[in-house]
Nucleic acid binder design. Sequence first.
DNA 1: TTCTGTGCTAGACTTTGTCTAAACGCAATA
DNA 2: TATTGCGTTTAGACAAAGTCTAGCACAGAA
Lengths: 142, 142
Amino acid sequence: MKQEQRNTGLDRETVVRKLREHGITPTQQRVEIATVLFERPQHVCADQVLAQVNAVESLVSKATVYNTLGLFAKKGLIREVLVDPARLFYDSNMIPHHHMYHTDSGMLEDVAPGQVQLGALPEVPEGMVIEGVDVVIRVRRI
Amino acid sequence: MKQEQRNTGLDRETVVRKLREHGITPTQQRVEIATVLFERPQHVCADQVLAQVNAVESLVSKATVYNTLGLFAKKGLIREVLVDPARLFYDSNMIPHHHMYHTDSGMLEDVAPGQVQLGALPEVPEGMVIEGVDVVIRVRRI
DNA sequence: TTCTGTGCTAGACTTTGTCTAAACGCAATA
DNA sequence: TATTGCGTTTAGACAAAGTCTAGCACAGAA
Ligand SMILES: [Mn+2]
Ligand SMILES: [Mn+2]
Ligand SMILES: [Zn+2]
Ligand SMILES: [Zn+2]
């Protein structure tokens, strides 16, 4: 891969620190991908990341994009969002929140956690922990 | 396709009536698929339906299984469940409920709606309606 | 310098699901 | 009876998301 700076609000330092804080070795490619992801809170799928990262020149391979997104999700840097049966979205906004999905347009919006009152959760089986609670409100045009 | 009776608790009459009630023309294949689905409330993906329907002898093609599951979902006979990014599950239990998904084993359990207190939902944009609210509690072994 | 481990890569491959074009089934008409 | 029409089914080609493999690069340790 070639290397060149991307003009964004995030400097390399900040991104590298963020990766280190999550126990991730900050390679050239991972920094490149993280820079795209954290430019702003967003919902993106693998191919969009691949396209954005390689917009100017080819910097990262498909395999690495998939591997890296998987790694970031496992390490708690980003979050998987399941709304479209055809592809997996990743959410670079880790502040707890829910989603509103527009089934006809494919649009995905954040919903502040306060807007959905989640009361008592069910008993979790012995020896198990809750990894997360996903609430998706599916809406469509009348 | 060949035709032959399947020994199940559900008789053909009941299934045919159910399809008609939802505005679906009860063809041989649709009845076959519905019989598998409604033997008991369950979560199944397309290939499981394909396999079950054709267990004894080839009764329904792949294309028809996919088309029919899509049709049934659209007509409100069954419900899509998105928990596994690799495949779409269908739920033959239409009584409103939520889900607990065991991420390591792939197991999917029902959660009674009373066990999750969903308070106020967010404002829905003008001209849109809520199609459904899906709550998935992801759990894993400690 | 050589060895070792981690990461990256192209491209083959797998799997889920969709599409197409032809054939089928059946009822209504001629 | 023959014909037409329409919705349905079908095999198999196809598309797209995602995974896997085998080789290479590179850094640090010995
Ligand atoms: Mn995409
Ligand atoms: Mn399956
Ligand atoms: Zn979000
Ligand atoms: Zn269920």
